[in-house]
Amino acid sequence: MVKKLGTRDVYGEVLVRLGQQNPNIVVLDADLSCSTRTCKFAEAFPERFFNMGIAEQDMISTAAGLAAAGKIAFVSTFAVFATGRAWDQIRQSLCYSQQNVKIVASHSGITVGEDSATHQANEDISLMRNLPNMSIIVPADGIETEKALEYLVKYDNRPVYLRLSRYKFPVIFDSQYVFRKGKAIVLEEGTEATVIAIGLMVSRALEAQQMLKEQGISVRVINMSTIKPIDREAIISAAQETGAVVTAEEHSIIGGLGSAVAEVLSEQCPVPLKRIGIKDCFGISGDADELLNYYGLNAQSIVQSVKEIIDKKKKV
């Protein structure tokens, strides 16, 4: 049985621990504290928790003000509201003003499920990626979520967008794992192609790698948990050494991981590329697992894409 952890559940617990260690940490939420798990921090430190009501724009700029006065502000709500509703506030109050605000958004991607397209954020990475001074981190499991949170409090005082999920992820790292912002992790070595994945697609990529291995195909798997600043070296060496790249993300293929990798490849080392993700469409209601299959966000689809890209590579 694969151990699974909800990245938002880990967030809720780690936030309380970080709050105990650092009295400067404050947390803001927009009426979704039970869903984002910031309610645990609210219970432990009621005086340092601010429920801002259903008002995301105000929440972001208020967090900027708290940070300007020396606080470390965590801001949480669903990914779709955190990024879409408050983009200009994030741009001016956080990024341009360079404030120490950490946006930790839950309920990203299609796996929000039954709540349908209005609540499924498939465009959030794209919205955050074009902002100067913004970092973007998408943890591959609960352990990486914990390590990233610890890292961000300790080493980073710029705005960051940490993308979490409602859906529970298989655990792939052990407690010794060391997170470094901007550093990709090669999880499996391989020679014929590279799969670069983020979030829950990392565990799918590892599954696909096993399936391909059984068929005699050797594939490198990279966890690109920091989308920005992206690890260009890891992408270039993967392209040079394996000659073909597949990206896999639970996000639109426009503006997210696939685009970021394509930008690096096309400028520095063009090789055949295939992007797995949501193909420029809105989602629909459904069970999360059914939706992942419906949109081709699974190991089978990665296997298929790897085979296609290897064929393409041979033809080039």
Partner: peptide, 11 residues
Amino acid sequence: QGLSAANGMAL
């Protein structure tokens, strides 16, 4: 945006 930011400072 300034009033929200000022609120944050006041908090």
